[in-house]
Simulated assay, not measured.
Amino acid sequence: MTVLQIVLIALAGFAAGTVNAVAGGGSFFTFAALVFGGLPTLDANATSAVALTPANLASVVGYREEVRKNFREMIPFLVIGIAGGAIGAWLLITIGDEGFRPTVPWLLLLATVLFALSGHINRAIAPFAAKGGAGVKFAAFALMAVVAIYGGFFGAGMGIMMLAALAIIESGDFHKSNAIKNAVAFLIQTVSATLLIAGGLVHWPHAVITMLASIAGGYLGVSVARRVPQPVIRATVVTVGAVLTLVFFVRG
């Protein structure tokens, strides 16, 4: 790695740690930096996923009281997360870089649209959450399973869809839903990271720099990010996602 690449990866890691603690979407920054730092798209995705996993543990710790109180109810979601994360990582390893590269712009586009429309998604889900019913809840559990597989495969934007499904199942208890989302997402990332490491896709020098910088961003950057309105941070993430989507479509 050149000095410029090290600085770029460290800055991206710091930015990812900061925005993940406040709004989500940090993998946009790290994935892009690792690709432009010279890694193949598949390896960049794997390295980014592994590097950001420790920093995301903090969000679980922050909701430890909700996790403790609702742990039994969380078990089905945790099982879905473990299974989905394993399937997603297995699919990623199986298709290889040649299969993964063409999907990157579409995955970035999907994640960007999810971030951009997150408020509208929440409002659209509200009537279904109020209505409830066995059929609606089954559909929500099915969505959770799909999101878990997506999270093991790529991950950006999975929190938004997970919260949408949980809003139906948990009938509007946001903090409980957020605690479940954080715990399930962390399990998805941990299982996925384990398989990606075993698959030899992680570049450790890049991962360690990203990991340390993201932890610093999560710890030090939050105090700065709190002073910036969340819509501004979300708009920044959406803008970065849109630019990256365009760049990867042009690159083919």
Rank of each mutant, 00 (worst) to 15 (best):
P231H: 02
P231I: 07
V238W: 00
L196Q: 06
A198K: 14
A207H: 04
I168F: 11
S214N: 10
V238D: 01
A213Q: 02
F174R: 13
L246Y: 05
F248D: 05
G199K: 05
I215S: 01
I233W: 06
W204I: 03
H206K: 12
L220Y: 13
T245K: 07
F248L: 08
I197S: 02
F186E: 00
T245A: 11
H175Q: 09
Y219V: 13
E170H: 11
E170P: 05
A213W: 05
F174P: 12
I197H: 05
I180K: 07
Q230N: 14
T210I: 05
S223V: 15
I188T: 03
N178A: 12
E170D: 14
T194I: 13
A193Q: 01
V237L: 07
T239K: 05
T210W: 08
G172Y: 00
K176H: 09
H203F: 14
G199T: 04
A198R: 15
A242N: 05
I168N: 03
Q189M: 13
S177D: 13
P231L: 05
S192G: 08
N182E: 02
N182S: 07
R226Y: 15
V247C: 14
P231G: 05
L201P: 00
I168V: 15
G172P: 06
A193L: 06
Q230A: 11
Q230L: 11
R234P: 04
L220M: 12
A179F: 00
L196G: 01
L244Q: 09
